[in-house]
């Protein structure tokens, strides 16, 4: 396994000199590339080195560094190796190339990332809505999206929903009867 990893790493590095490598145990290879190079690396891995199966595409919001990290995880059915290809893109201007011509299922991942993180995939041909419906707020998977504030604004404290606060208090007000002792303990 180790020899195979060294051999494949050498082949990848000979084609993409600026690639950064990180060493991991087991059957994992890990490379970081510039965003312009991602598609060429993926095509090379798929067509030349036999990494035919796209396992996953994910995104991590490193808000402190103002970047999104995209992670492409690919599997080689012949060599039984897993490769992580990472790239970092500017959080203020998150633009990537559309790559669904490499693997058709990338289209679905790109739609999700577009909606959940606001990443623009240039040339992506897909309907606007994927998971969210009639959504005009900020991309909800970004770290600065405040779920609690959104829920408070949307689902609580709005006119007509006062009853939702505390059922016991509401019942007391309506009936004019005092709460039983055991219920007082839990009342807010």
């Amino acid at each position: 396994m180790k020899e195979l990893k060294i051999k494949l790493t050498g082949q990848i590095k000979s084609h993409f000199s600026e690639i950064e490598e990180k060493d991991y145990e087991g059957n994992r290879l890990d490379f970081t590339v510039r965003k312009e190079t991602v598609s060429s690396v993926l095509v090379f891995l798929k067509d030349t080195l036999g990494f035919k199966h796209l396992s996953h595409i994910s995104c991590v919001d490193w808000i402190e560094e103002n970047v999104f990290e995209l992670i492409f995880i690919i599997w080689s059915p012949t060599d039984k190796l897993r490769v992580f290809i990472r790239t970092r893109i500017d959080r203020d201007n998150p633009v990537m190339d559309n790559m669904d011509m490499i693997w058709p299922q990338m289209n679905t991942y790109e739609r999700e990332l577009r909606e959940m993180y606001g990443i623009v995939f240039e040339g992506l041909d897909a309907p606007d809505e994927f998971l969210l419906e009639d959504w005009d707020g900020p991309p909800p998977m970004r770290r600065d999206f405040d779920t609690e504030a959104y829920a408070q604004d949307t689902f609580f404290e709005r006119p007509g929903r006062e009853d939702a606060q505390d059922v016991r208090e509401t019942l007391t007000k309506r009936t004019g009867e005092d709460l039983p002792d055991f219920a007082k303990k839990y009342s807010r």
Partner: peptide, 11 residues
């Protein structure tokens, strides 16, 4: 068309 069961698990 998906999304009708979306419950924001990952968030």
């Amino acid at each position: 068309e998906v999304g009708y069961l979306h419950r924001a698990f990952e968030k």
